[in-house]
Amino acid sequence: MTSFFRVGLVAAIAAATGLGAVIAWPIGVLPPPLIELEGDVNRGAYLARASGCIACHSDFRSGGAPLAGGVQLETPFGAIYSPNLTTDSQEGIGDWDVQKFAVAVRQGISPDGSPYYPAFPYPFYMNFTDQEIVDLWAAFQTVPASDTPSREPELMFPFNQRWGMKLWRAAFLEPPHTDPVPGNDGIWNRGRELVEGAAHCAACHTGRNFAGARMSDTEHFQGNADLPGGDKSPAIDAETLRERGWTVESLAYGLRSGIMPDGDVFGGGMGEVVNYGTSFLTDADRTAIATYLMDVHEGG
Rank of each mutant, 00 (worst) to 15 (best):
Thr2Ile: 11
Ser3Arg: 13
Thr17Asp: 03
Thr17Leu: 11
Gly18Val: 03
Val22Asp: 05
Ile23Tyr: 06
Trp25Arg: 13
Pro33Phe: 09
Leu34Asp: 04
Arg43Phe: 03
Gly44Cys: 10
Ala45Leu: 14
Ala45Ile: 14
Ala50His: 06
Ser51Asn: 11
Gly52Pro: 08
Ile54Gly: 00
Cys56Arg: 01
Cys56Thr: 13
Phe60Asn: 04
Ser62Gly: 14
Ala65Asn: 10
Ala65Lys: 08
Leu67Lys: 04
Ala68Lys: 11
Gly69Ser: 01
Val71Asp: 06
Gln72Glu: 15
Gln72Phe: 09
Ala79Gly: 03
Ile80Lys: 07
Tyr81Ile: 12
Pro83Ala: 12
Pro83Glu: 05
Leu85Pro: 14
Thr86Asp: 00
Glu91Met: 06
Gln99Leu: 08
Lys100Asp: 13
Ala102Lys: 00
Ala102Tyr: 01
Ile109Trp: 08
Ser110Phe: 11
Gly113Phe: 08
Tyr117Pro: 07
Tyr117Phe: 09
Ala119Cys: 07
Phe124Lys: 11
Tyr125Asn: 02
Ile133Thr: 05
Leu136Tyr: 08
Ala138Lys: 07
Pro144Leu: 00
Pro144Ile: 06
Ser146Trp: 07
Thr148Asp: 04
Pro149Trp: 01
Pro149Asp: 00
Arg151Ala: 12
Arg151Glu: 14
Arg151Gly: 10
Pro153Gln: 05
Glu154Tyr: 01
Leu155Asp: 02
Phe157Lys: 03
Phe157Ser: 13
Phe159Ser: 04
Phe159Gly: 08
Phe159Arg: 09
Asn160His: 05
Asn160Tyr: 10
Met165Cys: 01
His177Glu: 12
Asp179Glu: 12
Val181Ile: 15
Pro182Tyr: 01
Pro182Leu: 04
Gly186Cys: 00
Ile187Leu: 14
Arg190His: 07
Glu193Ile: 03
Gly197Ala: 02
His200Asp: 07
Cys201Tyr: 01
Cys201Leu: 03
Ala203Ile: 07
Thr206Glu: 06
Arg208Phe: 05
Ala211Met: 13
Gly212Glu: 09
Gly212Ile: 09
Arg214Phe: 14
Met215His: 04
Met215Asp: 14
Thr218Val: 15
Thr218Lys: 11
Thr218Pro: 00
Glu219Gly: 12
His220Asn: 09
His220Cys: 06
Gln222Arg: 13
Gly223Trp: 08
Asn224Ser: 13
Asp226Phe: 15
Leu227Ser: 06
Pro228Phe: 01
Gly229Phe: 05
Gly229Cys: 04
Gly229Lys: 06
Gly230Ile: 11
Gly230Ala: 05
Lys232Ser: 15
Ala235Ile: 00
Asp237Gln: 12
Glu239Ile: 12
Glu243Met: 09
Arg244Lys: 12
Gly245Pro: 10
Trp246Gln: 08
Glu249His: 03
Leu251Ala: 04
Ala252Pro: 05
Ala252Leu: 09
Gly254Ser: 14
Leu255Phe: 10
Leu255Ala: 07
Arg256His: 12
Pro261Gln: 09
Asp264Thr: 01
Val265Tyr: 00
Phe266Lys: 00
Glu272Arg: 12
Thr278Pro: 01
Ser279Gly: 06
Thr282Arg: 02
Thr282Phe: 03
Asp283Gly: 01
Ala284Trp: 03
Asp285Pro: 07
Asp285Ala: 06
Ala288Ser: 04
Asp295Phe: 06
